[in-house]
Design a protein around this nucleic acid. Sequence first.
DNA 1: TATCCGTCG
Length: 688
Amino acid sequence: MNSESRLKFLKPDDSDDVFAVDRETQNAETTSFVFNPNRNLSLIAQRDKLPIRKFVNDILYCLSNYQTLILCGECGSGKSTQIPQILYEKGYHAKGIIGITQPRRVSAITLAKRVAEEMGQVFGEEVGVACRFLNKFNEDTKIKFMTEGIIMREIFANPLLSEYSVIIIDEAHERNLITDCILGLLKKIAKKRESLKIIISSATMDAKLFRDFYNFRSKSNPKDTSIILTVEGRMYENEIFYLNEPCADYVQSTVDTIMKIHHKEPAGDILAFLTGQEEITRAIRMLREHMELTNVTEDELKVMPMHASLTHHDQLRVFFHTSRNTRKVIIATNIAETSVTIPGIVFVIDCGFIKLNWYMADLQINMLVVTPASQATARQRAGRAGRIKNGKVYRLFTQEEYQKLPNITAPEMRRADLSTTILTLKALGIDNILRFDFPSAPPAKNMLASIELLYALGAIDSEGNLTNDGLIMAELPLSPIHSKMLLESRELGCSDEILSIVSMMQVQQIFSYPKSGQGAITARRQRRNFEVAEGDLITYLNVYQAFVANGCTKEFCGQFCLMYRHLKRVVEIRNQLELMLTKQFKMKFNSTAASTTIIRRCICAAAFPFAAYLHHSGTYRMVRGDTEVNIHPTSCLYTEKQPSWIVFGEVVHTTKLFVRDITTIESPWLLELAQHYYHKTSVRNNQI
DNA sequence: TATCCGTCG
């Protein structure tokens, strides 16, 4: 392969020498690919061709007359790379740093590098980037890209963000929890600092909401303070097709549509959206059967899955160039909506459903549910086609159904667990959380449930004020339950082990689950080396200790079917937490002997709101609310003898309610360690 | 008995 003409991948961390990797991006967690149709032009020529450059004067006019500018435009218009440069060219950097936030690490790093390159600067000097485990900026940095989590930390340190002259919030239309939080905080800052300019990059449907949110017009000040500017930028059109009648099985319809496109349409790759891994596997199996029956070979139609739990190597397969006669078919989850951009897609198939996290306030748990997608999601998916030539989009629902879909997906703020958000805002001195001005106010019952949880954990007192422990919990980059575990471990004498366990809980998965028959059998046998009757968290501790004892090698992970890239991150996270706890909070680390009782008591002392007991029916019941829950098949307790009492980390809803990350406990511990939460009577009543 | 959408510090 000729490395000059090859597009560059960011961050393969398998040492895959086919791809060009550089050191800064090596740490990034996810796959990213930036497709650039003007690759052959010089950087400056490419830059001047971008649609956004035609709007320079409009942008500058808006910014000098209004404090907040809402910028609408399709992706590909060059907003993210050009706006910072335009502001720099006009000298905005003289009054303070130009800050740009991104929802994801890879996009922050990619964009920062691109802008440095276009400006002919050394990356990390005038143009820099900040995200967890990667700080590439210095005191001369004028354009600073960062993740949203980082600017949140900066608000902690400097509540008015006085170093900055401009803040650009990119991808605000995604309406992530943290984006909405920052938008609320920025509104307070903007009122106090009239010199601060704010640019919000958004899609059309949210523009008016954002404009009104930042319009401080009043009787005493009759002038608008915010304005919308729309920049056109699309180069190709997509033709949209709907079904005449609703379909019964969208997985089957996806397969049928793929075959129809393959037989009737000219060359061009296909991207199909389904809701989860299981559907994707089923679709691929059906498609292969179909291909066999109709004598279509893998050389003609190359099928591949794309979802987050694939190994990195398998994720990269979707980027391989295929021969001219091969049509690629990628069947993906919503990872392909934003996080991964696959070049050269001509056909998109959209099942019309999406899997989302919903917070059930009455149970205080998160649930994953499949729901109809929104029009905004359908448009976002459609936009993945038509980037190199006109595309076609097949929606597996009727046009009437499309009209009935909600305009946008409910912002995460309205459907997420708010305990971390509330803790953070409390730490920033916002006393009345219920009256905080969010772009979309969360449901009051969700807030109250989170406040109740924070009270139970001792993060806030009965007046709703942050306690000393609460302040530490707010500062730690962990969920309140995990922070609480660490705080409890000081007294109980097992902080070393709890730190390892908590670090392990910060990554998505530890074990790899190969799909092929023999691999799956090997993986299951290797997991047995670590599994213990005390539950998943103690099992994770065993894995961590074995990984470290064996030199943290890739070979060890290969042998025992562990996710090397995740375990490497665990080590990084553990180091960061240990440093924070010792330097910032003067915590002394201690370790317990061979017995796991102390460790399990410590887990129980933090996870007590999520306790369940074995009901005589053979399933579990949550102590709170008496809801039936089942042990998740990935838990090490799934095949073990079922313990009488457990605490768990999370609930997933598929065919039933399943609990994961389980630890066995003794029922008296709940009364001892959380007597403020569990009255003796209620525990006795629930006992068998 | 039958298996997780995607992010972040």
